[in-house]
Design a protein around this nucleic acid. Sequence first.
RNA 1: GGGCCCGUAGCUCAAUUGGCAGAGCAGCAGACUCUUAAUCUGUUGGUUGAAGGUUCGAUUCCUUCCGGGCUCACCA
Length: 502
Amino acid sequence: MSSEVEQIAQRRAKLDEIVALGVVPYPNQFPRTATVSALVEAHGGKDGPSLEAERPQTAAAGRILSMRSFGKANFVVLSDGLQRIQVYVREDGLPPLDFKIFKLLDFGDQIGVEGRVFRTKTNELTIFASRVHFLSKCLVPLPEKWHGLTDVETRYRQRYLDLIVNPDSRKVFETRARAVASVRAFLTNRNFLEVETPMMQPIAGGALARPFTTHHNALDIPLYLRIAPELYLKRLTVGGIEKVFEINRNFRNEGISTQHNPEFTMLEFYEAYVDYQHLMRLTEEMLSTVAKDVTGGTDLAWGDATVSFAAPYRRLSLREAAADRATAQLGRPVTGMDLRDRAKAAEVAKALNLDVQKGHGAGKIATTIFESLWERDLVQPTFVFDFPTEVSPLSKQKVDDPDTVERFELYAGGFEIANGFSELNDPAEQRRRFDGQLKDRAAGDAEAHQMDEDYIRALEYGLPPTGGEGIGIDRLVMLLTNSPSIRDVILFPLMRPLSSPQ
RNA sequence: GGGCCCGUAGCUCAAUUGGCAGAGCAGCAGACUCUUAAUCUGUUGGUUGAAGGUUCGAUUCCUUCCGGGCUCACCA
């Protein structure tokens, strides 16, 4: 009998036998003296004779990842989730009760082991067990030791299984943690203050996206899960926090793809008295530093390519770059100036088989043309700068060019990973921009920005010239870990719930 | 939401033109006191994602549904 149900029954019966031996089935603690990782770290470089001389004693604990039995001699691979060490269990090496317990163990069980560290004849670092303690039962059969777990659905739905049997998965999340720590250190070292602003907001602002809605009972008001922290962070800049950042979740009620999860982690930072040129330089410095901290270098493997995060990054003017490629694509001259003219831009877009909607002005069309012709090819880090004002309701216009804002997006790996701009700090102009967004909204654009009177009031107190930027942490981690899907770098990506059988 | 593809034992995968649902690992029983994908002998385990349909006969063909992957659209 060895269907899953039957194997669970067998394992439960073994647990009962362990209890019958007088053992506490689920003990409350185990006093270990070292983690498996610490043992590997401490003794991994020592040879057999030096370990024989030292005879280091240890008490370690972990999950059994494989068992090789020779009857009275047995080898067990023990894991702390990060590293693995072999345990040698022989009948004449430990108390009779411990050996009885050992014989009732299964692949996947949690045990504690006391013993000394040595090397076997085959030079494997090993704990020679003098005691074996039962810590917890794995009642459900685990995936196979050799092939591991490859079914992506199960890996995402039961991430714990993925972490148990696929060491590479654990490495991704170790890397993710180091990347976040590196970003935090980079900014903190430059006197940025880390803050936390509302995740539940009465007006979901700071980006163009559809929010999730919720409701507060006591106040009886609707609330939105934030789509960006932007407007709150700029209120803090008004309040005199000249360098501020937040690393936290945003929520957008939109499609799911290999590059989109409904909740995702964003870094946003604001620095007073600087413009977008400064932000681009700071970004180059930050990302090359993070890449080095996390991977040891600035060259990252990305599929078949290598992405270099060494500064400086290529810079492309949005309209000029779009016009260049449109020229090549259509075999006739298209200029950046053409893309400022609604009729000409729409004509070019149609020639490129792009969808042009009535409400879309020249700026939106130029942006669409750029994305369709360039985005996928931007594998090496590239700043795309000088966006149309029309698609940038929170960015500051260029002094000599009101149709263009001081804004950039950073692309790498073929997708956008950052968005930064000189912040619009003129309250009157901000009100005009919001009014323009309200018209889009009235025309049916659910992602258009809402009016935020409280934010305008804050601007009326005087926001200094400020540069602000958001960096998608999940996408950055995708690049740092060579992960093709955002779900590979999010521990529990959103999945459709499995319907329970009636 | 559209298009294409996938779903077989706990895991990884087979199954010829529509003709008895299989293997390896895991499990179970046994041998084995330095193995490491241990080995050897024996062995259990299936509502082939679900429900219908066609057929003498369906894992295979058709329909619907459920779940997933890639991709397009949308977005970061």
